[in-house]
Design a protein around this nucleic acid. Sequence first.
DNA 1: TAGATTGTTAATCGATTAACAATC
DNA 2: TAGATTGTTAATCGATTAACAATC
Lengths: 230, 230
Amino acid sequence: MRQRAGATGPDRKASRAAINRLSLYLRQLESLHTRDESTVSSSQLGQSLGLSDAQVRKDLAFFGQFGQPGVGYAVGALIPALRHILGIDRTWPTAMIGMGNLGRALLRYRGFRSRGFHIVALFDNDDQKVGRTHSGLKVHRFEDLPRVCERKGITLAILCVPAEVAQQVADQVVACRVRGILNFAPVKLVVPPQTSVMSVDLSVQLETLAYQVQSVMASIPAGRPQGAGN
Amino acid sequence: MRQRAGATGPDRKASRAAINRLSLYLRQLESLHTRDESTVSSSQLGQSLGLSDAQVRKDLAFFGQFGQPGVGYAVGALIPALRHILGIDRTWPTAMIGMGNLGRALLRYRGFRSRGFHIVALFDNDDQKVGRTHSGLKVHRFEDLPRVCERKGITLAILCVPAEVAQQVADQVVACRVRGILNFAPVKLVVPPQTSVMSVDLSVQLETLAYQVQSVMASIPAGRPQGAGN
DNA sequence: TAGATTGTTAATCGATTAACAATC
DNA sequence: TAGATTGTTAATCGATTAACAATC
C-alpha cells in the first residue's frame, strides 16, 4: 500500500527535515512559476537547492503521486498541493508576544503575512509599551491574553520575550489553547504534546558558524593568505 | 587511538547537529555555574535539554576526556573548554549587511556581543540609510566593503538583505575574505568551501510549524475541544 | 569498599542514496 | 519507438541508543 495524503494523512510520520525541504521545494516552485516554467524534474529541483534527485522524489512521493514518468512534475499543480500539505492554504491568526527590538522587527517582516501567518494581536507586559500602536495594532497587556486569543481565534504565537520568562509565558500561551509556538528565546520550552514548538536560536547558529569557520581555518596551512595571489 | 582536541583538531568531523548541542551544553553549564553547581552528570545535563545521557557523553568525549567516572563533569572546567572548541574564546569582528527592520533589530540583540560577536561595521546600499548612525556605528555604502573589511579585520557577516540580491552580496562578501556568513535571506547561498554559511530561514520554520500543528490537529478526534472539560 | 558515572564499543534506528522496472 | 524520468525497493551511510568494563 502506498501512503497518500488522504483525509486522515499519511501512515508514517514525515521527518522534520523532510518538511523543511518541502517548504524549500515550494519556494523554488513558486520561483519557477513566475518564470513560466510549467514542468520541472526532480534533478532540476534538487540541483537548485543542493539536494539529490532521489531525495526530492522520495520527499514528494511520501505525500502522493505528483510526477509523471518521463516528464517531471507540473509546477502549477504541485504548488497548491504543497501549500495544502504544509497547511498554508489557509490563514493562521497569530499573536506576537514581546514587543522588544526583535518583536517589532518581525512584525514588519513581509514573509509572514504573504504565507498566511497574519499577526492579529500584540502583547507585552511592560507598561511603557502597552497601549502603543505598531503597524495598526494596539499592544495588549499580558492579562488580556486569554480574552484576545479567544476573540481573535489565535492559533499560533511568536515568542520574542527574554529567556527568563519564556517558559512561564509559554505556559500561559498553551493555556489559551494556542497550537503552535515559534520561539526566539534561547530556552528549551516544555509544552504538552498537543502543542508544537519551533525554536530559532540565534546564539546557537552563530556559535556553530564560529566553530565551522575555525575548523576550516585550522585545515588551511597557517599564515598563508587566501586568494589567487593578489 | 582516541580523538582529542589537539593542535590540529579531531580526526573525524563533528556533525552540525553535534555542534549545535555543544552550544546548548555550554549555555546550560553557564546557568549551572551561576547557581554555584560545581559538577554535573551527563544524565542531568541531558535531562535539562531533552537529550539522552549517552548522547551528551558521546558529544563531549568526541573532543576530549572531560569527565570523571563516578563524579561527572566539572562545570568550571568544562565551560572554558567548550568555549575554546566552539571558537568563542575570542572576538569575531562582524559586519551587519542590510539595515532594514531585521538588521536594525539584530544590531541591538544582546546575545551576540556577549558571546564574542562584535558588530563593528554596518552596510546598506540605500542612500537614505547610508551615513546614518545606529548604536554608534555609521552605515557605510556597499562600495566601502573591501576597504572597511580590511581595516577592521572583519571575519563574519550577518546578511539581512532582500532575497533578490543575497547571492550577489554574498559574492562580494566572500571576495573580501570574510570567513563566515549568517544568512537571513530565504535563498541557498553558493559559496566556496573556505567560507561557511549558516542560514536562518524564518519562512521555513514557520511553515514547518504550521505542518506540525495541522498534523497534530488531524490526529485529534474532530470537533472535540481540548482541555479537561471547561 | 560500594555506588555512581564515565568513555567506548556494539546494536539499533532512521535517513539518504543507488538502482531499476514501470511508464509517459 | 527511444529517451527521459518517475515511484519504489534494496543498499548504504550516519547518527543515536544500549550496554558495560574501567575507574573515581
